[in-house]
């Protein structure tokens, strides 16, 4: 019944979205690529010249570059470790019978809805502040020296804050997956005398595998771009101790006015993201076939 008419209409309905996203994807990216081969400083915009691979070389030889790549990977890896392990544990707990489950659930997912600057400031000032933070209060009550978190463990502190924001996401998705586990299978396993550990390893974990993959991939996309949390807490310091790739690019572009250098960094970020995207698309695409 799909006439020529409806098919034309369908194409017309799709056109604006495709057009917008096409422009959105191609124009800025092409500009970044072009700038990355130029000597272009915003302080001296009249003097733009071809730089060849100089910007890449400059970025590559900057000691901050490798540190920022390493920091980026540490943030992604650290947060993933905390949120996936913690998320599985909390999801398993929430799947059990208890009183006030609705309220518990609401409390646990809440951090996800807190905007990044608020999350960072609250942790910085109210929780981790060496003078007035709650952790300092606890340390003093125990007779210990308060810790200056952002000076002594800047990257670790940022990982904690970001993990706090993403733990609810992992928990919620894993819990959703857990609740779709066939109850009969669980009962059968229990009847056969399978203990908690073997039920977890042979039944629950394989069932969760796909959701865990999805959690890891989606979080990685967002975690590669952590920005506001760093801006608000350590501003990338001390030195470059908590500077990740996005923050280094921001520093180069808007604080150093170096358009060429920042663009080269941007292209490197694209390559990094593409490696992740490749795997995510495969996982999501598989689901589409079902």
């Amino acid at each position: 019944m799909a006439t020529e008419n409806t098919r034309g209409l369908a194409r017309l309905m799709l056109a604006p979205s495709v057009g917008l996203l096409l422009v959105w994807m191609i124009v800025p990216l092409a500009m970044t690529l072009w700038f990355s081969f130029q000597n272009y400083n915003l302080l001296n915009p009249a003097n733009v010249s071809w730089a060849g691979l100089f910007n890449y070389q400059y970025f590559y030889t900057d000691p901050a570059f490798f540190q920022s790549i390493w920091n980026t990977l540490l943030i992604v890896g650290g947060v993933l470790l905390i949120t996936v392990v913690g998320g599985i544990a909390i999801a398993l707990l929430l799947d059990q019978p208890m009183w006030g489950q609705g309220i518990v659930r609401i409390m646990i997912i809440s951090p996800f809805f807190v905007m990044p600057p608020v999350a960072a400031l609250v942790w910085k000032n109210m929780i981790m502040h060496p003078g007035y933070g709650v952790l300092a209060d606890i340390n003093r009550a125990l007779g210990l020296q308060p810790v200056d978190w952002f000076a002594q463990y800047p990257l670790f502190s940022i990982i904690i804050i970001v993990a706090w924001q993403w733990l609810p996401f992992a928990t919620l998705i894993l819990l959703t997956a857990l609740q779709s586990l066939d109850g009969e299978q669980k009962e059968a396993a229990e009847m056969d005398g399978a203990g908690f550990v073997s039920r977890f390893v042979y039944l629950t974990l394989p069932h969760l595998a796909r959701s865990i993959t999805v959690v890891i991939l989606i979080q990685t996309i967002f975690l590669l771009g952590v920005y506001a949390e760093i801006l608000v807490t350590t501003n990338g310091g001390p030195g470059y101790a908590s500077t990740n790739l996005p923050f280094l690019i921001y520093r180069t572009a808007l604080l150093g006015y170096d358009v060429g250098g920042a663009s080269a960094g941007g292209i490197i970020a694209v390559i990094l993201a593409n490696i992740v995207a490749f795997f995510l698309m495969r996982a999501v695409g598989k689901n589409l076939d079902k």
Binding site: M25, V27, P28, L29, M31, T32, F35, I221, L224, G225, Y227, L245, P246, I249, Y250, A253, L254, V259, A262, S263, G265, G266, I267, A269, V270, L272, A273, N274, V276, A277, L280
Partner: peptide, 11 residues
């Protein structure tokens, strides 16, 4: 959606 925001910050 995978394009990192920071990659197109400058343009």
């Amino acid at each position: 959606k995978m394009m990192p925001a920071v990659a197109v910050l400058v343009p």
